[in-house]
Simulated assay, not measured.
Amino acid sequence: MTLDLQARAEALGQTLPPLLAEAEMLAATVMLGEHGRRRAGLGDEFWQYRAAHPGDPARLIDWRRSARSDQHFVREREWQAAQSVTLWVDPSRSMAFSGSRDRAPKADRARLLALALAVLLLRGGERVGLAGAAPPRGGRGQILRLAARLAGEGEDPADFGAPATEGMTGHGRAVFLSDFLGPLEAVEAALSRAADRGVRGALCQVLDPAEEEFPFDGRVVFESMAGGLRHETKQAGQLRDRYLSRLAERKDRLSTLARAVGWQFSTHHTGSPVQSALLWLFRALEGGR
């Protein structure tokens, strides 16, 4: 037991710094400036002037600004209450797939995206956590905790993952990162539970280019990462159109499920620049406010 714990600790120590360094470097490439909530409310920072409406208390009127016009203006401050954001990164065996030795597995890209997004949000004053693993908290220490959790996360023996909703804060935000190639009933159930709590967010489907393009021909043996599913064919090329049609239907279904509960959906390929996916995720969360 002691030797096993020591081996795991040493492995984590070797993995954590590169993952965290890469995530922080990725976050730094997304030039977002000051993290603005762009919403009126309680806070210290000036946001904008707006014309006074009937019923606005006199104490809210900015008399100096109003003196320069024929109408009264209210000085609004930027909303600065921290939000709680819960991340779920699919740990299933399906995420270990890579269609090329030159590309990292889907799981590596999903973890990098999750941690880089956490860095951006935490630096902006939000609270971030991992579903079922780490409750949402703020501060630099939380970045280290999340990095340790993600770097040390073991593989789920199942072929496909089911989104976890444990630890979500009511009326908070959430992000699910997965290939979403398993049964969609699990995704629908998780989105329903999130909606019941007033949680809104984003689904980010992470796929390898081979899963998107189906570049197979001739005799091929298809086998799931956990070995539970296996199919052999001598004419793989004839399956391409059917496969691409089924994949398109799945994406459309995921998009429909997301829209139904006020979430957003996007697909990211591990062969594409990661910065665009990170920026989309950040803006998806901002747009859900």
Rank of each mutant, 00 (worst) to 15 (best):
E286I: 02
L191A: 13
H269T: 08
E185V: 05
A67V: 01
G99M: 08
S255E: 15
G201Y: 03
H53L: 15
L121Y: 05
L87Q: 10
G167W: 12
L285A: 06
L244C: 13
Y49E: 04
S266Q: 13
E188D: 15
L247D: 03
E45V: 05
S245L: 11
A104E: 12
H231N: 03
E153W: 10
R145L: 15
G167L: 09
G55S: 11
S98P: 03
V220I: 15
E76P: 04
P54N: 02
Q14F: 02
D102R: 15
L146T: 09
G287P: 00
A148F: 00
G33I: 00
E213L: 14
W63N: 00
G139Q: 08
P17H: 10
Q6I: 09
E212R: 14
G13C: 02
G170F: 07
D62L: 08
A81F: 01
G201T: 05
D90A: 05
L181W: 11
G154M: 01
R103Q: 12
G237A: 13
Q264I: 01
R145I: 10
Y49S: 12
E166K: 08
R8C: 00
R173W: 02
M31E: 14
A58C: 01
A236K: 10
L20G: 00
G154Q: 09
P18S: 09
M1V: 06
A9M: 09
G132W: 03
V187S: 07
P215V: 04
L5E: 10
L121A: 09
A51C: 07
E212Q: 15
V199E: 06
A202I: 04
W63M: 10
V220Q: 11
E185I: 01
P209A: 06
G13R: 05
L203E: 06
G218L: 12
G154Y: 01
R68I: 02
Q6Y: 03
L120S: 14
S98H: 12
A284R: 01
E232D: 10
T2E: 03
R250N: 02
W63E: 14
G201Q: 07
Q48L: 09
A226C: 07
G182Q: 06
G132P: 01
L285I: 02
A258M: 06
A81M: 02
A27T: 02
G182H: 06
H268D: 07
Y243T: 05
A260Q: 13
R200W: 08
R68K: 13
R149I: 04
M25H: 14
A226M: 02
W47F: 14
V74S: 12
R219F: 10
G139N: 07
G201P: 01
G154V: 00
I61P: 11
A82Q: 08
D62M: 06
D44K: 03
W63S: 09
V89W: 08
F214K: 11
G201S: 06
R200M: 13
R193L: 13
A195T: 04
E22V: 00
P135A: 14
